[in-house]
Design a protein around this nucleic acid. Structure first.
Lengths: 161, 161
DNA sequence: TTTTGATATGTTATATAATAACGTTTTTAC
DNA sequence: GTAAAAACGTTATTATATAACATATCAAAA
């Protein structure tokens, strides 16, 4: 099993998630450096909090946590960091949940799709070229030129079945 | 060209949209009757307003319009009707826009996908079994059992290209 | 090494999206 | 006609997100 699959399958109990988080923060650091973008403490902390959760995270949940650490934290602080992290593809927004998840493919170009379990709320990001290409082809049939795709798939994960 | 395609392609200037609206309201009426659900004046008006727009419509835009017609209209009035119309598949919500569109396939079961033009904001709903089946198959590869899909595709429509 | 411009963050206020809870009216079934 | 259910009215509140402007920090040039 390759590294990407390893990182993205629905995870079992003995999975060492701290390693995932460290790796994600490390990758983020590198990507920001490469783009001369500043990976500030707030941005780093928010990315860490998002990765710590196995579920999509709400902006105001992040706000509540940050407020425990620094009581004058306000919504713009959170949303600015979320915007920054999305700009560099370090996180994605799940539109149908208004929630944010760490990107599993930050280190390379990709068109992600999300599998979200309605039982346990765990999710995985996949990068299926079959899906993205089918969407591209089918849209072209209507004369439509695709620029971006939002694909959010709900159902039951292997563990909950 | 069959009726469905006719109704759902990106529409040209001389398209008689009033006919679309009438047909949609008519279909809605039939569907509600068949389910012994009440197609009340408010629900009818909201569906009409949604169909009148060639763009996805925001709940608070509907509220503003309804308030001009009856000044004590409040958000729950709008959201209740939206919920009702969604329940009977007469409209869909575009999750990435928090906006609502008339359903083009209300008369039959379907898994829709949306093509939304980033230039003119016009949209079409397609019902591509190639897309929905590919998603089903690919998700199963991860041991995931699909219950529902959200597919929202952004880009340029034929006219704006 | 100071100035300066750019970027990031702090702060206040507000806009937008959606729902809870309860009262009243209307409809439908008996 | 009455009772139950459904729809709608009303008030309040929660959730999501951004505008606008002030202050602080950083990084590059003078």
């Amino acid at each position: 099993m390759n590294k990407i699959l390893e990182k993205n399958l629905f995870q079992n109990r003995d999975h060492n998630h701290q390693a995932c988080i460290s790796e994600a923060l490390d990758t983020a650091n590198k990507i920001c450096s490469a783009h001369e973008a500043r990976f500030t403490p707030i941005r780093r902390r928010i990315l860490e909090l998002i990765w710590k959760s196995h579920e999509p995270v709400l902006a105001y949940d992040l706000l509540r946590i940050l407020r425990r650490e620094k009581d004058n934290t306000e919504p713009p602080t959170v949303y600015r960091s979320l915007d920054f992290l999305m700009e560099y593809n370090l996180i994605h927004k799940i539109e149908s949940l208004n929630a944010y998840v760490g990107c599993s493919y930050a280190h390379r170009p990709h068109i992600g799709q999300f599998l979200i379990c309605t039982e346990c709320n765990q999710f995985v990001e996949i990068d299926s070229s079959k899906i993205s290409k089918t969407i591209l082809t089918e849209a072209r049939q209507s004369g439509f030129e695709v620029a971006s795709q939002t694909v959010e798939i709900y159902g039951q994960c292997p563990k909950c079945r």
